[in-house]
Simulated assay, not measured.
Amino acid sequence: MSTPNISRNWFDAGGRGYAQFRPEYPAALADYLAEIAPRRGKAVDAGCGTGQLTVQLARHFTEVIGLDPSADQLENAAPHADVSYLCAPAEALPVPDHSADLITAAQAAHWFDLPAFYAEARRIAAPDAVIALISYGVLRFENPTLNQRFARFYRDEAGPYWPAERRLVDSGYADLDFPFAPFSPPALVIERDWNLAEFLGYVSTWSAVRRMTEAGRADLLTEVAQNFADLWGDAEQRHRVSWPINLRVGRI
């Protein structure tokens, strides 16, 4: 039985951590967005991070632009021949007027100045363009013991360190202003089978974990990592994890 190196700093992740550990979206998400877009010319992914959704859109659209204000995120973004990455905020998109058939923001809109982003979306939207705000909810383990421990970590230990914007993710963006003609999207889910290192790597990308570290609570994080190691069994054993995908989709 293998055991993890708990002395390793699992909780220090930047763009490289996002690229390595953040879950990819199911292909069905990009399929759906392409299906409802008026054309398959240009897609713009604002707040693209390391490109988890961006590269999937390239299977459907002639041109895809991924934009993020973080140079570190973009340096670790997944390369693709049909994707251009630009360092820019969602509130000032370097995209020509009336040119985008699809505008997306995946696990990012809660950080935006939404009125400014919506103004930009309207400016760059081609006729009948689609806008989609995508988020995924709280991770769940299929294993009940791991799920119970995770729920306590998320709620009680990491909870006080989540920024206020996190509540918007927890509500599935239901509380966000969304002044567009809505679609009724399908129910989608992300599923993965992760070993212990992959799970802890994902947790290391949380904003709450960065804030815990900055607050001097690395001791708590080490304790949590050890707890999960004790409950996991063989560190290479794979446990099923899942996240519900939440969508606010509309016609501009």
Rank of each mutant, 00 (worst) to 15 (best):
S2A: 14
S2F: 02
I6Y: 02
N9C: 09
D12T: 07
G14I: 03
G14V: 06
R16L: 15
G17W: 14
F21Q: 03
A27R: 14
L29W: 12
A30M: 03
A30D: 05
I36K: 05
R39L: 12
R40C: 13
K42A: 14
A43K: 06
A46T: 13
A46N: 04
G51V: 08
G51I: 09
F61V: 07
T62F: 06
E63H: 15
I65R: 02
G66D: 03
L74I: 15
P79H: 09
H80S: 14
Y85N: 06
L86I: 15
A88P: 02
A88G: 04
A88K: 02
A90P: 01
E91T: 11
D97L: 03
L102M: 11
Q107K: 01
A108T: 08
L114G: 03
F117T: 10
P127N: 04
V130W: 03
G137L: 07
F141K: 00
L146F: 06
Q148K: 12
Q148D: 12
R149M: 13
F150Y: 15
A151W: 00
A151G: 03
E157I: 13
P163V: 11
L168N: 11
D177S: 15
P185A: 11
P186R: 12
V189K: 14
G201F: 06
G201R: 00
V203K: 00
S204N: 02
T205V: 10
G216I: 14
R217E: 15
R217M: 13
R217Q: 15
L221V: 02
L221A: 04
V224G: 00
F228W: 02
F228R: 00
W232F: 10
E236K: 09
Q237V: 00
R238C: 07
P244G: 04
P244H: 06
L247S: 05
R248G: 08
G250T: 12
